[in-house]
Nucleic acid binder design. Structure first.
Length: 517
DNA sequence: AAAAAAT
């Protein structure tokens, strides 16, 4: 029911947008009544078959703004073998998987074939789904083109094309692929195009591939939401200093900390920090793009489900991932690009909750910190004194233990071989008890092993959840009341409140519609 | 100074 108010947007409910009863019912079941600005702006036009140019970040409810109208439009007609009816392109595998989850959630009243085409997993199942005829095809560009070249896929039946996170695709060098894909799809299609920013290359792309698009823009204040407490933390610049700083911080925050994402700038740092945290008995997982895909999925799932308290991640996890209720974000490294800072800390303080972010900064990070402060328009407070009081530890570049020269540049290949040889003996001390060995000296575990650890962990968890499913005949098991017994009683996890807050990606308060043409 | 993505 919409009552008259001065601002139309506030009065809107989902039932005002023209969505089908099936879709509305799924939305209602999910607990949502009010569309976000991007949803309110885009859905009616998308339903009419118009092209939409949505300028919005993740975190604005953008995903549902194309999923819901697509579901409504898909109710007429059916898919033919190898000819998907719709195609959604995503820059990362995790985002693609997340979009699939949205189609499953809101498409529960529909009988749709959904296919997810991403790299790192086998072709077999993907081939089968294509062969069966996909109503919804969600893909990362590389794997999509691979399937096409193998003749498993025809794109000339695509009625709706979604290009999501276009500016990020640009960063990742996907634009030529995107252009190729766009050219394979008949121009009679409808195109829904989303980008957080509009650099010239992206504008060019929209001019080429969109027809008279409706432009819906949601402004993101470059400032982070006010419900996130931000602090800078001084640290010496040596890796072991930073790790110590982080551990101290984690311990100090322990009481308030439900779960945390710890961002590093580089994959190798993710690996190293992950290993280090395991050695110090932190309940940590890792996520970066060089990890085995199954481990990636499992780590993310475990973190979402509360089976892991800490997730050490590269920027693959910075944008778009919808993990509700992350209490803390730690930046182990100051991000080099200021916008990444906003994305990273935006993983906490979701749906109006409060969140805390700590950014570890060293002397050499000053200019990046400055850039961030310029971007967000405020100074970030220091947690415990600024860098003028920091003490740099002495010592060589990388302390070592019975090993050759400092291992830094150009280590990759020859060290991988070493790693394999040494793995056996090094396994032994992985779970070594804490001792007085300086942190740095514990850090010499081979990088290649991280994927292993991740995998083993993932495998264990997969087995465990499989057993749980078999073990409990009760599939109406409530989270919270009926927790598996293996949750140690003395260490009962604080229950999450399952209340639904906001819609999907949810809209931070600092966003609003600024333009609609 | 990076990360991401087909193999």
């Amino acid at each position: 029911m919409s009552s008259d108010t001065t601002i139309a947007q506030e009065a809107l409910t989902f039932s005002d947008l023209g969505l089908s009863p099936k879709v509305l019912s799924a939305v209602t079941d999910a607990g949502y009544t009010q569309p976000t600005p991007i949803q309110a702006g885009a859905i009616p036009h998308a339903l009419l078959g118009k092209d939409v140019l949505g300028i919005a970040q993740t975190g604005t409810g953008k995903t549902a703004s194309f999923v819901l109208p697509m579901l409504t439009r898909l109710e007429k007609g059916r898919a033919r073998a190898r000819m998907p009816r719709t195609l959604i392109l995503e820059p990362t595998r995790e985002l693609a998987a997340q979009v699939e989850e949205n189609f499953i959630k809101y498409g529960k009243n529909h009988k749709l074939n959904i296919a997810l085409l991403i790299g790192g997993v086998s072709f077999d199942e993907q081939d089968k789904k294509l062969e069966r005829g996909a109503d919804v095809l969600i893909a990362t560009p590389g794997r999509l083109l691979d399937h096409r070249e193998r003749g498993k896929l025809l794109l000339n039946g695509v009625e709706i094309l979604v290009i999501d996170e276009a500016d990020r695709m640009l960063d990742m060098g996907f634009i030529p692929d995107i252009e190729r894909i766009c050219e394979m799809i008949p121009f009679t299609r409808q195109t829904l195009f989303f980008s957080a920013t509009m650099p010239p290359e992206i504008t060019k792309l929209t001019e080429k591939f969109l027809h008279a698009p409706v432009r819906v823009e949601v402004s993101k204040a470059a400032s982070a939401a006010t419900n996130i407490i931000q602090r800078l933390v001084k640290s010496g610049s040596k890796p072991w200093d930073k790790r110590e700083t982080l551990r101290n911080l984690m311990k100090a925050e322990d009481a308030e900390l439900k779960n945390a994402i710890i961002f590093c700038n580089r994959k190798i740092e993710v690996s190293e920090l992950f290993r280090s945290l395991l050695k110090y008995d932190f309940d940590a997982g890792a996520l970066h793009g060089d990890m085995d895909q199954r481990a990636r999925m499992q780590m993310l799932a475990n973190f979402r489900d509360g089976k892991l308290r800490y997730l050490v991640a590269s920027d693959v996890a910075a944008r778009g991932l919808d993990i509700p209720d992350v209490s803390h974000v730690f930046n182990y490294d100051v991000p080099i690009h200021a916008e990444d800072y906003v994305h990273r800390i935006g993983r906490t303080g979701r749906a109006g909750r409060s969140g805390k972010s700590f950014t570890i900064a060293t002397r050499s990070d000053t200019k990046y910190v400055d850039a961030i402060e310029r971007l967000i328009g405020t100074k970030i407070e220091w947690h415990d004194g600024d860098l003028s009081t920091v003490t740099e530890s002495e010592g060589e570049e990388q302390p070592r233990r019975g090993r050759g020269a400092p291992r830094r540049a150009g280590r990759k290949d020859e060290d991988r071989k070493d790693d394999r040889k040494e793995r056996g003996e090094r396994k032994k001390d992985r779970h070594a008890k804490r001792d007085e060995t300086p942190d740095a000296a514990r850090e010499e575990q081979p990088v290649a092993e991280v994927a292993d650890i991740a995998e083993r962990r993932a495998r264990k968890d997969a087995i465990r959840s499989e057993n749980e499913r078999k073990g409990s005949g009760n599939h109406h098991e409530q989270r919270g009341d009926a927790r598996p017994q293996r949750d140690r009683p003395g260490r009962h996890r604080q229950e999450e409140d399952d209340a639904t807050v906001g819609f999907g990606d949810d809209v931070p308060a600092f966003m609003r519609i600024v333009a609609k043409v």
